[in-house]
Amino acid sequence: MVDILRYRDDEAVGHAAVTVDSFLDQSNAAAVRVEPGDDARALLPHLERIALVEVNFPAFGDGRGYSSARILREAGYDGELRAVGDVLVDQLAYMRRCGYDSFEPDAPLDAGDVEAALARWPDVYQVAADQRAPIWALRHGDGHAA
């Protein structure tokens, strides 16, 4: 059973993602898989032809994928950004903040736990890729990007 949590309305890409190296060598792939050691910035010249970026988390404690995600969103990527691998319920909220809008965890997550985790934080202290207005913006009556 493959459980993919998806927070987008568009059609999911139908084919498998290729590695960053393969992607850079061929022009027809629309899905690419970023490993922790890959430089997400290598994709920036090609964002308009990408519909899905999978970022692999081989171990949940390896946090490089959080930066990869934000870098892609900061550069304007608006396709699907999927965290795959050792994705646990307690990391989902931070992943959402960094721009992930779908998840393919190795072990299925309890739907109630997911809902609770994503609804947990009423506000945030800092700007990230999710466009939520940080607390400082709320304090100073600035709606910011929200």
């Binding site: 946090g63 903040r97 934080w121 945030v124 202290y125 800092q126 990230a128």
Partner: peptide
């Protein structure tokens, strides 16, 4: 302190 609290990108540093 506020910036670094619950920072979504920097909670799983090396």
């Amino acid at each position: 302190r506020q910036w670094s609290s619950f920072h979504p990108e920097f909670s799983y540093l090396p």
